[in-house]
Design a protein around this nucleic acid. Structure first.
Length: 463
RNA sequence: UCCUCGGUGGCUCAAUGGUAGAGUGGGUGACUGUUAAUCACUAGGUUGUAGGUUCGAAUCCUACCCGAGGAGCCA
């Protein structure tokens, strides 16, 4: 007999038919009326399926009565209309087969309340909770929607390398990749001799696939990456990970306005998809995690994102009358408190800030004609802050070179990146969206460590 | 990395220098088409680690470890 998933069984189309269900026990309640209630979950949806197990079953006393939360079973039985109030359908069991028992003295993920912090220490088991099941389903849907969105627009999915030899992709501290014997590192003239290392030079884990995906856009028009990214920053916040996933689209023949438009469309597409296809999970988040999440998502989906130049943003902040810990000065980056003021108080929706001062942004961003700003954008959303960072890319080779030099870097490692500007140069633009931040935004989860299966943060790489 | 707060039964927390408690989960019993079931009884702790102050430390001091919130870095 073929297994039926609980999500399908709950739709009630197989009513009065015999079905086979498999899953993990969430709770068991015994009735001295001569039967037990078992709530079974198999991950196919948030809801459990109630199983009625009669005490007449052969293994009732020996096995069924020992089914604590976490136990795995299969149930063959009749799907019937429920006599009780809490659910539409239930299964009257003909047979209960136990795969594995679960000792309640040792198993933490039982019926009692457990904090997210504690659950993080048992990430291999937390997937069995309502919250992490819901997070997983939503995260999965966001990944699928990402591919759908870009594929429909004709973007090619590119797998850019995880290992890179350029120390300067423009963002943050990097993790070193080496096969040199750490107990006996070869040296030459006092310095580590990387010519003996695996790649014959220093190598690292990537902090961005952007430079690679630019090559593909400048030849195939549109491309995107969706892969892991590594930052060795000692960041300890609820929105930073050392290993996270990033989506980086890149468009040829596009400017900053095109870039911003696509970012807005993309975010709205993700929200719409999740609202349509994960409604049960979103309702759960709205009830248990963030009571305003449904309203926020609906609002964001239906509203137009604000577009605001950095210069105007500074102006608004100065005139706001709001007391900030950090003063707002043209030339210094927006602080978290400034971003939150814009998204949560001034506009109450996502804000795309554009045209930042040149000196606080990366070398590859296109210089504007004013020679003071670059065609960069940050998409800021309430609570999370920066969810997207993007720009039009510098396509003037002279200006690119002078920016590279200004930042104290040498041109040589960028020879291939610079070639794009020499041969069939085109204006192009793109951005990076932090996938976990998007999952956070959509679910209302407070901590980014709780929206990725096995979080990597400073001092933490278990599992 | 910086600032602030925290670490006490399996879990969630209380006990503000004087005998370590509750809820919850577990066990036992009662009751029940139950659904965070309910009621009664019961077992369960070297208070993060290492030092120190004190007649006496969960409580005060020092160092370290771990966690959380905020900041910086960013996505």
């Amino acid at each position: 007999m073929k297994r039926t998933y609980i999500a399908k069984a709950l739709k009630g189309k197989d009513i009065d038919k015999e079905i086979l269900i498999k899953g993990w026990v969430r709770t068991r309640r015994d009735s001295k009326g001569g039967f037990s209630f078992i709530e079974l979950n198999d991950g196919s949806c948030l809801s459990n399926l109630q199983i009625i197990v009669d005490a007449d079953l052969d293994n009732y006393q020996n096995e069924v009565i020992r089914l604590f939360p976490g136990s795995s079973i299969s149930v063959r039985g009749l799907l019937v209309k429920s006599q009780g109030g809490g659910q539409c359908v239930e299964v009257k069991a003909y047979e209960v087969n136990v795969y594995g028992f679960c000792d309640p003295d040792e198993y933490v993920v039982g019926k009692q309340r457990v904090s997210f912090e504690r659950l993080r220490e048992i990430s291999h088991l937390r997937v069995r909770t309502n919250t992490f099941g819901a997070v997983t389903r939503v995260r999965n849907k966001l990944a699928k929607a990402t591919h759908d969105f870009f594929q429909d627009l004709g973007f090619y999915y590119i797998n850019t390398p995880i290992i890179t030899a350029s120390d300067c992709e423009g963002a943050g501290e990097m993790f070193r990749v080496t096969t040199l014997d750490q107990a006996d590192i070869p040296r030459s003239e006092g310095k580590v001799d990387y010519s003996q290392d695996f790649f014959g030079k220093e190598s690292f884990l990537t902090v961005s696939g952007q430079l690679g995906v630019e090559c593909f856009a400048c030849g195939l028009s549109n491309a995107y990456t969706f892969g892991p990214t590594f930052r060795a920053e000692n960041s300890n916040t609820s929105r930073h990970l050392a290993e996270f996933w990033m989506i980086e689209p890149e468009m040829a023949f596009a400017d900053l306005a095109d870039d911003a438009d696509m970012a807005e469309e993309y975010i709205k597409y993700l929200i719409t998809t999740v609202l349509d296809e994960c409604s049960e999970d979103i309702d759960f988040f709205n009830k248990r995690i963030d009571k305003s999440i449904l309203e926020t998502l609906t609002h964001v989906k239906d509203s137009e994102f604000i577009r605001l130049s950095y210069t105007d943003a500074i102006d608004i902040l100065k005139k706001s009358g709001q007391k900030f810990e950090y003063e707002t000065n043209w030339g210094s980056d927006l602080q978290t408190e400034h971003e939150r003021f814009l998204t949560e108080k001034e506009f109450k929706k996502p804000v795309i800030v554009t045209d930042y001062p040149r000196d606080i942004k990366a070398f590859y961003m296109k210089q504007n004609d004013d020679e003071k700003t670059v065609a960069a954008m940050d998409v800021l959303v309430p609570k999370i802050g920066e969810i997207i960072g993007g720009s039009q890319r510098e396509d003037n080779l002279k200006k690119l070179d002078s920016r590279i030099k200004e930042q104290g870097m040498s041109l040589e490692p960028y020879w291939w990146y610079r070639d794009l500007r020499k041969f069939g140069n085109v204006p192009h633009a793109g951005f990076g969206l932090g996938f976990e931040r998007m999952v956070q935004f959509v679910t209302g989860m407070d901590n980014i460590r709780d929206v990725i299966p096995f979080p990597r943060t400073p001092k933490s790489a278990e599992f």
